[in-house]
Simulated scan of single mutants.
Amino acid sequence: MRPIRSSLALAAVFAALAGGCATTPTGRSQLILVDDSAMDRMGASAFDQIKTSGRLANDPAANRYVRCVAEALVRVLPTHERQQAWEVVVIQDDSPNAFALPGGKVGVHTGLFKVATNQDQLAAVIGHEMGHMASRHAAERVSQRYAADAALQALNAATGGERQQLLGLLGVGAQAGVLLPFSRQHEVEADVLGQRYMALAGFNPEGAPAVWENMIRATSGNRPPAWLSTHPDPAQRVQSLRASAPGLMATYQQARAAGRNPNCR
């Protein structure tokens, strides 16, 4: 009976893989085996854990500034993402970091303000995180893990279990709060979308290479932040973002002419 049972299990896995094909906003095929609502529940649960950790920044001005940038970006996202209940918080942490969780949850570290020195540069980072969400990268990473472990039944766990699954499957960094270990392919894809979103929202797309130039200078001679370990080479990233910026200037100028003139301070 065991060979038959194993064959049936393998058949179920292959069937799930065959039915799990999706497409990112950039046109890349991806494997999605997990329901968006399940990912949103896990994201909300993990985000609640972060908010109750005592590390939220008690800085109304910083929170208003970050929300201003995020709200401008949300207004130009694809319909499904735009309709989410986005929530953005500032976390008291000196590392230049930001993260996103399923369900429209975004965290920005106070240390990011040292390298993202204006609204355009901050929009590049937040737009990048929103690009991860629009591309369902978290669901893709979880799906890849589920496929490898043949553990689709784990989605039926209780809410507390879901939180632990997300923290384990996505690799939560103890210091950063939540650190999604996206692949370099995901990071490049989020860069492309983030720069596109910021131009559509009326932020100067030249802010994207600028913030990475600042990041390089800030970490020169030191060990780069852990969240950069799966990112493309910073110098190559600056080059790619600088090369794509001129092609987005018309989009940026049209957005400004249409009244999308964010003034976040």
Rank of each mutant, 00 (worst) to 15 (best):
T52M: 09
T52H: 06
S53D: 11
N58S: 13
D59R: 00
A61Q: 15
A62Q: 13
N63C: 11
Y65K: 12
V66G: 03
A70F: 00
E71F: 04
R75W: 03
R75L: 08
V76M: 04
H80G: 06
R82L: 07
R82I: 09
A85T: 10
E87N: 13
V88T: 15
V90W: 02
D93V: 09
D93Q: 12
D94L: 06
P96C: 11
A98Q: 02
L101E: 02
G103Q: 02
G103R: 00
K105S: 08
K105M: 09
V106M: 04
G107F: 06
H109L: 03
H109Y: 08
L112N: 10
A116P: 02
T117D: 14
Q121S: 05
L122Q: 06
A123G: 10
A123F: 06
A124Q: 04
H128T: 05
H137V: 14
A139T: 08
E140A: 15
Q144K: 15
R145I: 12
R145A: 08
A148M: 14
D149P: 04
A157P: 01
T159S: 14
G160N: 08
G161V: 09
E162K: 15
Q164R: 10
Q165G: 07
L167W: 01
L170Q: 07
G177K: 01
G177P: 02
